[in-house]
Every structure is written in structure tokens, then in C-alpha cells.
């Protein structure tokens, strides 16, 4: 009997939000004493149910994160294991290479709208059924199944100084560009290749978002004589706010954490350190220079940046969504 009561009273909790669950528990305290045993179970049930998830997050995520942060306050080499305060962080600030890596993060944030707009626009065209949209759908997705190493190797060949890209430029009378050897160009090239290689995934997410779009609104717009840009701006973009928000955040994370393979294969952080990103810096310090504590400090900085950028984006986009 008590079990049935517990079950019936607990049932709404998983479906509802945490706020509702909390309210239910608070309300339980004011109820008569004779039902306290079942109420204790009722109070405990949500905690028991979330415990595995919380434990996994705490033991496998937060605890190692704290260990890593703690490790970043210790020294390397001769000072291995001793506390050095903020030395590692000061050293990072002092290192022109790390500052370059941070500047490149800034550049990635600036290029982010482009990286989101490309799959968004292409998905819109597919959604609006341009001729050949079925073919494009698979062609666009194709690079997403290639590993970054393969993509990097392909573009290394294409963009070599004596490679096909420069031959093509030469045939129309333009001078060769040292795509991967010019520090002012290399970072844009690598980002471009990364976008080419990964936009297929964002495209699929956009197409899924389009599926939830109210077709009646589009029809109404068409009837009202809206042009294509007007349709995109006033109907499609507001309708896809949540999708755009999601793509923004995942693209940003992808840019900051999954470009290692491309960098490794295409530029090795060069030329002149111009294509360093924090994750590449972390790998060099840990693997090549044998400075794990400094690498931990850099990882902590990267984590804080990701957190800040992610929260900022969500806030900005939420506000934008409300206005629309």
C-alpha cells in the first residue's frame, strides 16, 4: 500500500522539472506524521534516482578536474610536486606562444558566425528544395565522415606550394600563395578546412530543426509576397533560434577542441607559431617539453575560456530569441 503511494506520488517528479520536485518535497514536510515513513522514501527517491548520474559526474568529471586544477599549482622538473602558487599561470602569460594561442581563440570566436552561417544557409537552400537538393544533402555531409588526419593530408597536397591550388591560380595569372607557410594566411586556411570538414554535421542539425518549422508560417509568408531574404530573416531565423543556439555552442566547442588533428597534420602549429591553439600548446608542453604542470595550467585556462564563452553565447542568444 505504501509502495503504491510512493510510486504514485513520485511518478510526476522525473517528468517534471527540478523545481517541481523540490516543491513537492518541501510540501511533504508539512503533511501529518503518520505518513512520515513513506514520505521519507518519497523524499529520498529522487536523490537515489539521480545518484548514479551525479556520482559519475563527480567521480569521473569534477574530481579529475579539481585534481588537474590542483596539479597546475605545482612545479615541473626539479620542482616536481612542490607548490609553486601562480608561477605556471604567470609563465603562461609571459609566453608569446600561449598569447598567440589565445589570440587565435579570439579569431575563432570572430569567425564563428561565418562557420554557423555556411551550414545554415546551405540547409535553407536544401529545405527550400533548390534543384538537386538530394544530391547536395549527401555531398555536404560526406566530409564529416573523414578523419581530420585524412582531410589534413588531402589539403596538404592540394595547398602545397607546388600543388594544384597554386597551379590553378597561376593559370589565371595570379601569383602563388604559400597557403600553409605564410603566417598571415595559414590560420584562415586551417579554419576554412575545418569548417569544410565539419559543417555537414551542423547542416544535419539545421535540417532537423527545419523539420519542426511550422509550414503554415512559410506558406503565409509566400502568400504575403515575402522575398527569399525576408523569408529567411523574419520566418526561418526566429523559428530556428534554439537550433542556431545549439549549433553555435557545438561549433565553438568543436573549433576549440577538435582542431588538433588538422593542426598536427597541416601546420604543426607553424609557421612561426601562428596556428597554435591552446590544445596544441597543451600537447606540446606535456608531450614534447615534459612539463605536465604547465600543461595543466594551460588546460585550466582553456576550460575557463570555454565556460565563459559558452555561457556568454547562451545568454546572448537567449536574449536575441526573446526579442524575436
Amino acid at each position: 500500500m505504501s509502495i503504491r503511494e510512493t510510486v504514485s506520488s513520485v511518478r510526476p517528479a522525473p517528468a517534471g522539472r527540478t523545481g517541481e520536485a523540490a516543491r513537492g518535497t518541501l510540501g511533504g514536510r508539512t503533511r501529518p506524521r503518520r505518513r512520515s515513513r513513506s514520505l521519507t522514501a518519497e523524499r529520498l527517491a529522487p536523490y537515489v534516482l539521480v545518484a548514479p548520474a551525479v556520482l559519475i559526474i563527480v567521480v569521473l568529471r569534477l574530481w579529475p578536474l579539481l585534481l588537474g586544477v590542483n596539479f597546475s599549482f605545482t612545479g615541473d622538473g626539479d620542482r616536481n610536486g612542490t607548490a609553486v602558487g601562480l608561477d605556471n599561470y604567470l609563465r603562461l602569460l609571459d609566453d608569446p606562444l600561449f598569447r598567440q594561442a589565445l589570440r587565435n581563440v579570439g579569431l575563432l570566436v570572430l569567425l564563428l558566425p561565418v562557420a554557423v552561417a555556411i551550414p545554415g544557409l546551405l540547409a535553407t537552400f536544401i529545405f527550400l528544395r533548390v534543384p538537386g537538393h538530394r544530391l547536395y544533402r549527401s555531398v555536404y555531409f560526406f566530409p564529416a565522415v573523414l578523419s581530420p588526419v585524412i582531410v589534413g593530408a588531402i589539403f596538404n597536397l592540394l595547398l602545397a606550394f607546388d600543388g594544384p591550388a597554386n597551379t590553378l591560380l597561376g593559370s589565371v595569372g595570379l601569383g602563388p600563395v604559400d597557403w600553409l607557410g605564410d603566417p598571415d594566411v595559414a590560420m584562415f586556411v586551417v579554419v576554412g578546412v575545418h569548417v569544410w570538414a565539419t559543417f555537414g554535421m551542423a547542416l544535419v542539425i539545421f535540417l532537423a530543426g527545419f523539420a519542426t518549422l511550422d509550414a503554415a508560417l512559410l506558406d503565409a509568408a509566400r502568400v504575403d509576397g515575402a522575398t527569399l531574404p525576408q523569408t529567411i530573416w523574419h520566418v526561418i531565423v526566429p523559428g530556428l533560434t534554439r537550433t542556431i543556439q545549439f549549433v553555435f555552442v557545438t561549433t565553438m566547442i568543436g573549433m576549440l577542441t577538435s582542431m588538433f588533428g588538422l593542426l598536427y597534420v597541416m601546420t604543426s602549429g607553424g609557421p612561426e607559431g601562428s596556428t597554435y591553439l591552446p590544445e596544441y600548446y597543451i600537447w606540446i608542453q606535456q608531450g614534447q617539453m615534459n612539463r605536465p604542470a604547465l600543461a595543466s595550467a594551460a588546460s585550466t585556462v582553456l576550460f575557463v575560456i570555454m565556460l565563459a564563452v559558452g555561457l556568454l553565447q547562451i545568454r546572448l542568444l537567449r536574449r536575441a530569441g526573446r526579442v524575436d
Binding site: 596538404n156 595547398l159 602545397a160 606550394f161 602563388p176 604559400d178 600553409l180 605564410d182 595559414a186 609557421p271
Partner: peptide
């Protein structure tokens, strides 16, 4: 040197 030494592995 060959052209593009900085981008030649």
C-alpha cells in the same frame, strides 16, 4: 632553397 620551405615537410 626550394619555394615554400616553411610549408614543406
Amino acid at each position: 632553397n626550394n619555394d615554400g620551405a616553411n610549408s614543406t615537410a
